[in-house]
Amino acid sequence: MNMHKYEKIWLLFGTATLLVFLTVVGISAFYMGNQPPSCAVTLNPEKVHETAPFDEPGLKQLGDNEYQLTIVASAFNFDVGNNEKLIQIPKGATVHFNVTTTDVVHGFELAGTNVNMMLEPGYISTYTNTFKNTGKFTLVCNEYCGAGHHLMAATIEVIE
């Protein structure tokens, strides 16, 4: 089997490019801690409302500009702890998201940010995000969950 000289160069170049991509995301993930959301903590999906911290959804301040935001998703609602479906966060704050679902699979996506994870019954999904930019960000469900899927939403407002 022979390979043309140009093809060898092309494949070397292509493979090297892929290696660079893998290295960049690998270092970012394993060295700098930017792993995709992969929390392994489980709970009983039928007892979400009795399990801390999901018995009290909402924003809790943990320290200097550091918060925990607990949200319970269900068809077709994000329970963020208030009826206005609005959470306000100061700019530059670090927020630990703690989310789960009481019924089916939901998506948890804060549009325009890197907060984007799956919610699956029995699992807690966590992600930590620092809000660098101000504005109103809409939280949407991005995995089909039933007839009202497109009605699930809440607002997270990052203020000065």
Binding site: H4, Y6, W10, G14, T17
Partner: peptide
């Protein structure tokens, strides 16, 4: 195969 080479490099 110079044209081929340039084409694939453009894809890259």
């Amino acid at each position: 195969l110079k044209g081929t080479f340039i084409s694939v490099m453009l894809i890259g």
